[in-house]
Structure formats: structure tokens, C-alpha cells
């Protein structure tokens, strides 16, 4: 079984979370546990990974680069457009064609949606999508799943609260698609303007997944195993008054967690602005910093699997 999965993942791009089936996703998060135990190894000593960040995302880039360097690999690439030929008018196609001559794997972030899929079609080496506009960011989803597994000891039968901007939130959409295969019950909590789009609700209904939709969440918190907070951005509101009225409804404060389950953990893809009050940070149920650290091990697992060194 796992030999088949290994062969399937080798040299295959990871562009969308659905590029990996449930078994492959589970394989990666199980493998991440091994990297967490031994994060410094020399298995990538003969490999070069390019990180091409056509738009800045310092934390994601550093996480990938640290994952590679801790495994003995080398990094080439750029972290902003000013140091790349793109400013001279080079097409994405030409950049990918050329860079794929110089490395064994490309990690890319690009503002255009579908750019990573396109790159995977023209590149000689596999592509890992580190975010293509509002579309996909699959390594974030896998690290979210790893964080859920680590804190709950299982991925099955959990009550997952997704809170904040459910309309535009890329991480929310990918996470719900992935977790819908684990008998999850979802609680969607958002301002009316930023509710989950119907396409995703139909997706869940077709899979017979139970979900509830609320516009405030305090009374429901005792049911939660995971509260996944996201940022409610002012610019997403057509009416600024509506934003002012609702913004405080979606701020999680420490006193709201008093009646939460002992196993409950708060996750957030970060960066956080004010949606989780700083007084939550010292609560042992706050897990977002560990979640970011988990990204390192998950990315080590993904990179090693794609390069076939594990």
C-alpha cells in the first residue's frame, strides 16, 4: 500500500489539495510525525529546490526554505519580483522553463489563479503550489490536518468550527474539502455577507456531511473540537457600516473559552490581526504558533516524497 503511495507521489506536482487522495493525504501527515522526531537529516544533500515567490509571503517562503535546509538541500530563487526577469516582461512560461533546468523541484507562489497548474504542465521538474491567488494553498491544508491529528489524536468524527471570512477564505475552502472525507460535522460562523458560497454547501450535501451555519458562535463553543479562526477583512464588505457592526462578533477572547471542551484547540492560518485577542495566546488551547511550526514537518514530508528520497 505505502509503496504504491510512494510511487504515486514521486515526481508528481502538488497544485491542488485534490491532487492527493485521502490515503495520500493521510500518508503525508503520518510521515510528518517522523520528521518532527528528526527534523535534521541529510537526505536532500544532492538536491536543489527553487523557491519562486512572484508575490511576497515571507513566512511561507521561510518555512519551505527551512524545511529544505534542515534536510541538507540547497535553495535558489527569488522572494520578490524586483530581483527577477519578470519585471523585464518575461512570461511565466519562460521563467518556469528556464528555472526548471536549474533545480529538482520548484516551490512557487503567484498572484494569478491557475498559475501553478500551468507551471506544472510546462516544467521539467515537479511544482509545489505555495499559493496561487485566491485559489489553492495545499501545503497549508495538509499542515492544518496534521495539527488537527496531533491535537485530537484522530481526524475522524470531529466538530470543526470555521469562523470569519468563509466566502473568500482560501484556506477554509480547501480544509473543508479535505476534512469532509473524515465524517466531520462543520459549524460555519460568519457575518451574513461572508457566508460560505453555495457551491461548497452543495459539495458537502452530496457527501452527506452535516453542517450548521450561524452568524454568532458563543453559545455553540462548548461543542467545538477545533475552532479555526480566519481574518475578517474590512475591504470584503460592500458597506463599511456593516463591517463596523459585525467586526467584534468574530473576535475570540479568552473568557469565551471557559466552557470549551478540554481537547478543544484554536487554529489560525496566520497572519492574525485582531480576530484572536492576545489574552488567548497564553491559554493552552491556543495552538496557532504550534500549527505554524507543524508546517515545517509537513513540508519536509511533501518535499521528500516528491523527490523520492524517503
Amino acid at each position: 500500500m505505502s509503496i504504491n503511495i510512494k510511487n504515486n507521489l514521486k515526481n508528481k506536482s502538488l497544485v491542488s489539495i485534490n491532487d492527493y487522495n485521502k490515503e495520500e493525504q493521510t500518508y503525508i501527515i503520518e510521515l510528518a510525525k517522523k520528521f518532527e522526531k528528526q527534523e535534521y537529516q541529510n537526505i536532500l544533500k544532492d538536491y536543489i529546490v527553487a523557491t519562486l515567490f512572484f508575490e511576497p509571503s515571507t513566512r511561507t517562503r521561510l518555512s519551505f526554505e527551512s524545511a529544505v535546509v534542515r534536510l541538507g538541500g540547497k535553495i535558489i530563487g527569488f522572494s520578490d519580483l524586483n530581483t527577477s526577469s519578470v519585471t523585464k516582461g518575461e512570461t511565466l512560461k519562460d521563467t518556469i522553463k528556464i528555472v526548471s533546468n536549474y533545480c529538482d523541484l520548484i516551490v512557487m507562489r503567484h498572484p494569478l489563479e491557475g498559475s501553478a497548474r500551468y507551471a506544472s504542465e510546462i516544467s521539467k521538474v515537479p511544482i509545489i503550489n505555495a499559493g496561487d491567488g485566491a485559489n489553492q494553498h495545499p501545503t497549508q491544508t495538509l499542515l492544518d490536518m496534521y495539527s488537527i491529528l496531533k491535537t485530537q489524536k484522530t481526524l475522524n468524527n470531529l466538530n470543526i468550527f470555521l469562523v470569519g471570512d468563509l466566502k473568500y477564505g482560501r484556506t477554509v475552502h480547501s480544509l473543508l474539502m479535505a476534512m469532509s472525507k473524515f465524517n466531520t460535522t462543520f459549524y460555519f460562523i460568519s457575518p451574513p455577507e461572508l457566508r460560505l458560497p453555495n457551491d461548497y454547501k452543495h459539495y458537502l450535501e452530496n457527501l452527506n456531511v452535516t453542517y450548521y451555519e450561524y452568524s454568532e458562535f458563543l453559545e455553540h463553543i462548548p461543542k467545538a473540537d477545533i475552532i479555526y479562526m480566519t481574518r475578517v477583512q474590512k475591504e470584503r464588505f460592500s458597506d463599511p457600516i456593516e463591517y463596523e457592526k459585525t467586526k467584534n462578533t468574530y473576535i475570540l477572547t479568552n473568557d469565551m473559552l471557559v466552557n470549551s471542551k478540554p481537547n478543544m484547540r484554536v487554529l489560525h492560518p496566520l497572519p492574525r490581526v485582531n480576530e484572536i485577542s492576545i489574552d488567548v495566546d497564553n491559554n493552552k488551547k491556543a495552538y496557532y504558533y504550534d500549527q505554524a511550526q507543524n508546517g515545517l514537518y509537513v513540508r519536509q514530508a511533501i518535499i521528500s516524497s516528491i523527490l523520492g528520497v524517503i
Binding site: T91, L92, K93, G114
Partner: peptide
């Protein structure tokens, strides 16, 4: 054509 203005197909010859 893809109707999403942010789709890569509306920016490169694809």
C-alpha cells in the same frame, strides 16, 4: 474564455 479575470489563462497565451 475563463470568466475569472484573475485566471492565468487571461494573462498568458494559454
Amino acid at each position: 474564455k475563463c470568466y475569472n479575470p484573475q485566471c492565468v489563462t487571461n494573462h498568458e497565451k494559454i
